[in-house]
Amino acid sequence: MDTYTSYQLITKDITKSLDQVEAQPVVKRDTDYYLANIGNVKTIDDFVKDTRLFTYAMKAYGLGDMAYAKAFMVKALKEGVADEDSFANKLTDKRYAAFVKAFNFAAYGETATLFPAAQQDTVDKYMRQTLEENAGETNEGVRLALYFDRKASSITNWYDVLADTALSSVVRTALGLPDSFASADIDKQAQAFEQKLDIADFTDPEKLSKFLTRFTSMWEINNPTSTAQTSVSVLFAQPTTVGISTDLMMAMQKLRF
């Protein structure tokens, strides 16, 4: 199943896609544990000592690969986000500040884990992260498209895009720029993006959809899908297709910037 078709299949009914992720036995078991126990956490030390809870929360915010860095996260959590010069706020990667804001022990102390941000909101983020990771296991282009779709509304300038390797990869691919372009002067990269795209379009669902259609189409051309059956096709019980699908060819014919 090609990149374009796989992405469209997932996003056609995103609620259904997320429900299917939530129903996976391992995901359900970990989520049940998280919801049953997170409200009992009263301190930062308690939080990081429960590896199962902490890892779940970190993954929800896209920080799963940093779950081992507990001392680093303790420092971020202790300083909070109220002060613009706090540790989390000074980090270039804004995911850390988002995590600290959700588990705001610095501001709310023992009640920090009782707020929606630490409870259902974190679960919702975990489901979306898992959906993207599952897709990425067999098609990185689908993962990138899902990620861009999730982040698009928060993009305010091209430097936000260039600071995020995944976002910038999507834009370069959609514009037909080589990976080597990423080593060019940062201001020249931003200027090139600005000349080709209106960043405000990313907040318009229809225009964003058109952009991601272009990206998934270009990704498929550059990275032809293997003939092996993908996890996406298994998840949705659809047969795989080999090569470029009719839907993809039709979508490509409509692409215009």
Results as ranks from 00 to 15, higher is better:
Gln24Met: 14
Phe181Val: 01
Leu177Ser: 03
Thr11Cys: 03
Ala237Met: 02
Phe215Gln: 08
Leu91Arg: 15
Tyr108Thr: 08
Val142Arg: 05
Ala76Phe: 00
Ala71Pro: 04
Ala112Ile: 03
Tyr108Met: 13
Thr246Arg: 13
Thr216Ala: 07
Gln189Gly: 10
Met127Lys: 14
Gln191Gly: 00
Ser183Asp: 09
Ala106Val: 10
Tyr34Lys: 09
Ala36Glu: 13
Leu208Pro: 07
Glu206His: 02
Glu79Lys: 13
Ser153Tyr: 09
Leu212Cys: 12
Pro239Tyr: 00
Thr111Arg: 15
Phe257Ala: 07
Trp158Val: 05
Ile155Ala: 04
Ala102Thr: 05
Arg172Trp: 10
Leu114Arg: 14
Tyr147Met: 05
Asn104Asp: 15
Leu167Phe: 04
Ala106Glu: 12
Leu235Pro: 00
Asp83Trp: 01
Leu63Thr: 03
Asp93Met: 10
Ala182Met: 07
Asp121Thr: 11
Lys75Tyr: 01
Asp30Ala: 11
Pro178Asn: 11
Met73Leu: 15
Ala60Lys: 03
Ala107Ser: 14
Leu35Ser: 11
Leu175Met: 13
Leu175Gly: 07
Met1Ser: 03
Thr138Pro: 01
Gln20Ser: 11
Lys75Trp: 01
Leu18Val: 06
Val161Gly: 02
Ala97Phe: 08
Asp187Ile: 11
Arg150Cys: 00
Asn222Cys: 00
Ala135Leu: 07
Glu110Gly: 00
Phe148Gly: 06
Val171Trp: 04
Ala82His: 01
Thr225Ile: 09
Asp19Arg: 14
Val142Gln: 09
Thr225Arg: 07
Thr203Gln: 11
Ala251Asp: 10
Pro239Ile: 01
Met58Phe: 03
Lys254Ala: 12
Trp219Ser: 06
Val161Met: 00
Asp198Leu: 06
Tyr147Ile: 11
Asp198Gln: 12
Asp187Ala: 15
Met249Asp: 11
Ala117Gln: 14
Gly109Asp: 05
Thr240Glu: 04
Thr203Met: 01
Ser154Trp: 04
Lys254Gln: 13
Phe99Thr: 01
Ala135His: 05
Asp201Val: 06
Ser17Cys: 08
Gly141Gln: 08
Lys49Cys: 05
Thr43His: 08
Lys59Pro: 05
Phe215Tyr: 15
Ala228Thr: 13
